[in-house]
């Protein structure tokens, strides 16, 4: 019971977009899929949902290939930035169509959510603003009877209140009926506590794949006078550095050297997910090659 991505490789016009990717997406977990623009997140999601078949490699759900597989495709929903709904259809009409194709839909919940977000059921999809298109697709994502929900930039165009409401509804829906959510977003701080497991996609490869708490336990920020910090972090996996008025902060990803005493002048703290992400995916290549 899981979605397996095995050796998925994709290139467009000779440019590699996904470089031999391997991933497992387990049932009933909330995942974060993080990556900078152009890292390949959307392509990965398009391959998983068979919108774009992979050049090589395979995506399976419970051991069966998802390619051209109604049972697998009907058990996942991808909310994407691209709009695939007919612009002339009305919101409620599209709810009904979704119910027809997916063989079920929580219409009562969809109507309640539409009320909470202020989405007009009689509005035509094409006339909705970017924010309300997101809201419309989010509502479908929460109401379709699938076990795997993929959300690509789910809060695009949503104001702070609606984002807050969405995260709350996501966790409430998850509490009611546990299922897998994979959230791909640039707003890392907003989802950092929401997700259980994190994938970081950088330069077309997965560079982080682990439980958020495990990953953050290995992400240190070591600060103090430059010389002392340098001495303490020498030889460790340094992923970034900051300098603030005479104080140096060096970011380390990996285990510290427990045999070294921590100097009195040096402070060891943890990085948060966003800081870790920025450090790991900064374009300075000599730094990011230190990963793993």
């Amino acid at each position: 019971m899981s979605i397996e991505i095995k050796g998925v490789h994709q290139a467009f016009h000779g440019k590699v977009v996904l470089d031999n990717l391997n991933l497992t997406i387990e049932p009933n977990k909330i995942y974060g899929l993080l990556g900078r623009n152009g890292a390949g997140k959307s392509t990965l999601l398009n391959i998983i949902s068979d919108r774009v078949p992979a050049r090589s490699g395979a995506v399976t759900m419970d051991g069966q290939s998802v390619h051209e597989n109604n049972a697998a495709l009907g058990n996942l929903y991808l909310m994407s930035e691209v709009n695939l709904y007919p612009p002339r259809n009305k919101v409620d009409q599209l709810f009904k169509k979704t119910a027809n194709f997916y063989g079920g839909f929580d219409t009562a919940y969809a109507h309640r959510l539409a009320g909470e977000f202020g989405l007009d059921l009689n509005a035509r999809f094409g006339k909705l603003s970017t924010g309300y298109r997101s809201i419309f697709k989010l509502i479908i994502a929460l109401c379709v009877p699938v076990d795997y929900v993929f959300l690509d930039e789910p809060v695009l165009g949503l104001d702070a209140n609606h984002r807050d409401l969405f995260y709350q509804e996501l966790l409430s829906a998850y509490g009611e009926r546990p299922r897998t959510f994979v959230i791909s977003t640039h707003l890392i701080e907003e989802v950092a506590n929401l997700i259980e497991h994190v994938f970081v996609l950088d330069d077309h490869r997965i560079i982080i794949n682990g439980d958020v708490s495990d990953v953050l336990a290995k992400a240190y920020a070591i600060s103090g006078p430059q010389a002392d910090v340098d001495r303490y972090t020498a030889g460790l996996n340094i992923i970034g550095a900051d300098h603030l008025a005479g104080i140096a902060v060096t970011y380390v990803y990996g285990t510290l050297d427990n045999s070294r005493p921590i100097p009195d002048t040096v402070q060891v703290a943890n990085q948060d997910l966003q800081k870790l992400f920025i450090n790991l995916t900064n374009t300075t290549k000599e730094v990011s090659t230190n990963v793993n």
Binding site: N70, G74, L84, K97
Partner: peptide, 16 residues
């Protein structure tokens, strides 16, 4: 293409 878009969004295979 327009129909395909809606169908693949709704998890319907090409051969269907």
């Amino acid at each position: 293409y327009d129909v395909f878009k809606l169908l693949i969004q709704n998890g319907i295979a090409r051969r269907t």
